[in-house]
Design a binder for these strands. Structure first.
Lengths: 157, 157
DNA sequence: GAGTCCCTTGTTACGGTATAACGTTTTGGG
DNA sequence: CCCAAAACGTTATACCGTAACAAGGGACTC
């Protein structure tokens, strides 16, 4: 089964209108608190991610950017910034990016990814706390963690 | 700190000689048991992965394949096969592939990846068993799992 | 206000990653 | 032998991401 095969793919609900404005303005505050700048391109990419409400490919962001689109480095730089500050995550197994529902708080990411409709759910990283024990046992200093589970969401089962 | 910065990058010890032959012949047995075929290209790619003893990029496999190299689809098909049967894993965060030390037994993969020397250690997937609970709570049917931890291995600390 | 620094951006071009689509060959079973 | 399924070879192309360098712009000092 591949993505889009089951007819549920339209379900991801992104932000719009007032909720979107509020999220962006909230982001502006937290960026300022971190002594960084939420520039136009960074704000625009975050806006696109929030509107999408789910994983988005980098080149879709590039195409949707507006004014005829943006050049790749513009979007990739913005994504790097958003990841660094915890506003977005990269989904390694999809080559896609997603806005973080716990925006602004830097944390490890863990996801459930529906193979059918493409929806994602971010879950609590504590579920993988056992990794710390394993890392310790190997003399390994843990710095970051990616956990991506594939399967079927409730709607697609 | 980026890969290769600390001078430990040569440590991954791959298989060679008799051990390599033994591993390949063992693989042949398990492939046959699964009612599949270990063809020349599949065998060659597995051999390259085992020799490397660590993550290898697809295009390095293509270049190293021999006889002037192979075409991309040849190697990607072999990798897909090896993954399907549990002889190799894809490291999503590195765009690389690695032979599986528990070859032939299909299982979830979990890795510690050294950001300095590039070495990887495969750890037991039980460390992430809590994901099953989270998936259940979301009504999510779990089918596969990727866990990749980044940090520093003992030698590089 | 001129100089300077650093961060951010714009732009071009390129390299690495992976797959589509096709026809051909091999394999194993009837 | 003949057929169907699996595997392969080949060409071409699409997708993903970054290198490199020039230029803008705000904050700070002198």
């Amino acid at each position: 089964m591949s993505k889009g095969a089951c007819g549920h793919e339209g379900e991801a609900a992104g932000l719009a209108g007032r909720a979107l404005d509020a999220a962006l303005s909230e982001a502006g505050v937290r960026v300022a608190a971190a002594d960084e700048r939420l520039t136009d391109s960074r704000r625009r990419v975050l806006e696109l991610l929030l509107e999408a409400g789910g994983p988005v490919k980098a080149y879709d962001l590039i195409a949707a950017y507006g004014q005829g689109g943006a050049k790749p480095p513009t979007v990739y730089r913005a994504l790097e910034f958003l990841e660094r500050l915890g506003f977005a995550h990269r989904l390694e197994s999809l080559n896609a990016y997603v806005a973080c529902p716990r925006s602004g708080e830097v944390h490890a990411a863990a996801f459930l990814i529906c193979q059918c409709c493409g929806a994602t759910a971010e879950i609590e990283p504590e579920v993988s706390a056992g990794v710390e024990v394993a890392a310790e046992a190997h003399g390994f200093e843990l710095r970051g963690l990616t956990l991506e589970a594939r399967g079927l969401c409730g709607a697609c089962r």
